[in-house]
Design a protein around this nucleic acid. Structure first.
Lengths: 82, 82
DNA sequence: TTGATTTATACGCACTAGAGTATATAATTA
DNA sequence: TAATTATATACTCTAGTGCGTATAAATCAA
C-alpha cells in the first residue's frame, strides 16, 4: 500500500496521488514551487532528483514519508526476480 | 513513528537506524556503495542529496519508504510551532 | 476546424552531488 | 601512552539538477 524502494516507484505513486487530487503537473508545480517540466521528470522516475524536491511535492499533495522495515516477498522490480 | 517531511528528518531517522544496526558510516557505505563522507552528509540532512542515494541507504538498512497522508498536528520542525 | 489544455522534451545557466582521495579531530581500546 | 576506529570536512572532477524559457505532440472542447 504505497510502498516504494526506487525512484521509479516513488514517481508512480506521486503520479497516482496527483491524479487523485485532480491536479495538472502545472498546478502541482505551482503549489510546490516547481516547474511543470520538473514534475514530469520526477513522475517518470528520474533517479537523480533531489530529496528536497520530492519533499516539496509530497507537501503540496499533503503527504509525508514513513520509513519502515522492508517487507519480504516484494521484489524491487519484476525483472529482479528472474 | 518514523515519519519524515524534510531531509533533516530523513537524516535523523537514517542515523538512528544505522545505530540500531550497529554499523559504522563506513560499513553502511560499503553495503550501499557509498563513501563514508556521503553517509555523513546525508545523516546531517543535506537537502540536495539524490533520491537514489537515499534509496540505496534504505536498502542497505533493510528499510523502505511508505507514502502516507500527512498527519495533522505534527509540524515539520519544532521551530515552526512558535 | 480552431483553440485550449496537458505532458514530454530541449537549451543554457549556475549550482552541487558523489567519486576518489585525503586529513584532522574525537572517541575507544590495548 | 600509543594505536585504532569513527566522524566531519576538504579538494578536483564529471554528471545532472531545477530554473527560465520554449516548443511539439496529443487530447478535448467550442
Amino acid at each position: 500500500m504505497q510502498r516504494a524502494r526506487t525512484p521509479k516507484q516513488i514517481g508512480s505513486i506521486l503520479y497516482r496521488q496527483r491524479d487523485l487530487a485532480e491536479l495538472s503537473q502545472h498546478e502541482l508545480g505551482n503549489k510546490a514551487g516547481l516547474r511543470q517540466a520538473t514534475v514530469s521528470k520526477i513522475e517518470s522516475g528520474s533517479p537523480t532528483t533531489r530529496i528536497q524536491t520530492i519533499c516539496a511535492l509530497l507537501a503540496a499533495l499533503d503527504l509525508e514519508l514513513q520509513i519502515v522495515p522492508r517487507r519480504k516477498g516484494s521484489a524491487d522490480n519484476i525483472e529482479d526476480i528472474f
